[in-house]
């Protein structure tokens, strides 16, 4: 296994030296840059959902994230707003192995209840926004066939076609990845009639503790006319989270790291 890693890393470097990355390397690095920066991290997220008519709803939550090995991660999402979600916690143990579903729970403080959420469609809206669950926790790379359709001076353009088209609402999507940071900057989702139906864009990127980081992103549902803007504040990496935070004990009493 170690040898294989060394080999892969060496091959990666060779690729950089030659100025060429394979499409699998590109999507793997983009995935790492988007979802796995550092060993752990935290951020305060403000989500503003604006519907076609212009009325807005907002959500505010703190996310704690920890890489727990071989692609698995744990997320602790502590809600401050809206008021009816105050103190609720969304806890996720993300799985990447074939055939394993993420474990997800909602902590309902008024009932002192940790409610399991049945494994679900990952294309479902995240807390009523235009982001879907997979935008937040990452889509498994194995779920799509990736094609490098274009390499510009500073971006890779990758077309992704689902292995199981019946399981998702899109026919394919295209992502634009910055060569310098390996962060995806734009994604366009096309529906089964070939029409552009949804876009997700990283509108602001900053380097924090050496990690290129999206600090504002926008998702648009072109069918409903609804737009969601996410802004990220108080972003920190390598804060030394303890894995036990992601257990029932710390649902009952939110950890210091989750409270502003």
């Amino acid at each position: 296994m170690k040898k294989l890693t060394v080999l892969l890393v060496a091959a990666g470097f060779a690729g950089i030296l030659l100025g060429e990355l394979s499409v699998d390397e590109i999507v793997e690095r983009a995935n790492q840059a988007s979802y796995y920066a550092g060993d752990d991290g935290s951020a305060d997220v403000t989500m503003t959902i604006t519907d076609k008519g212009g009325s807005t709803r907002s959500r505010e939550f703190t996310v704690l994230r920890m890489n727990t090995g071989a692609g698995t991660q744990k997320f602790y999402v502590y809600f401050n707003k809206p008021a009816d979600l105050y103190k609720q916690v969304f806890l996720v143990w993300k799985e990447v192995a074939e055939g394993r579903d993420d474990s997800r729970w909602m902590w309902l403080p008024a009932l002192n209840l940790k409610r399991s959420i049945a494994p679900g469609d990952k294309r479902t809206s995240f807390v009523g926004s235009d982001f879907v669950y997979e935008d937040v926790s990452g889509r498994n790379l194995r779920e799509d066939i990736h094609e490098l359709v274009e390499t510009t001076a500073d971006q890779y353009v990758v077309k992704n076609t689902p292995v199981k088209p019946e399981a998702v609402e899109f026919a394919h999507y295209t992502i634009w990845i910055d060569k310098a940071t390996m962060l995806p900057r734009r994604a366009e989702y096309y529906d089964k009639t070939g029409k552009l139906s949804r876009t997700v864009e990283a509108t602001k990127v900053e380097t924090i503790q050496g990690f290129p980081t999206v600090v504002e992103s926008v998702a648009k549902d072109l069918n409903s006319g609804s737009t969601t803007v996410n802004t990220y504040a108080a972003i920190k990496y390598n804060i030394g989270l303890n894995e036990r935070i992601f257990t029932e004990r710390f649902l009952r009493r939110p950890p210091r790291e989750a409270i502003r």
Partner: peptide
Amino acid sequence: LRELNVVFFPVDWADVKVGRQILT
């Protein structure tokens, strides 16, 4: 009165909650 309680953490491996609380 639904809840009026104090949670304290005397040691690293124990929490104590005292007072009126919802238990489930």
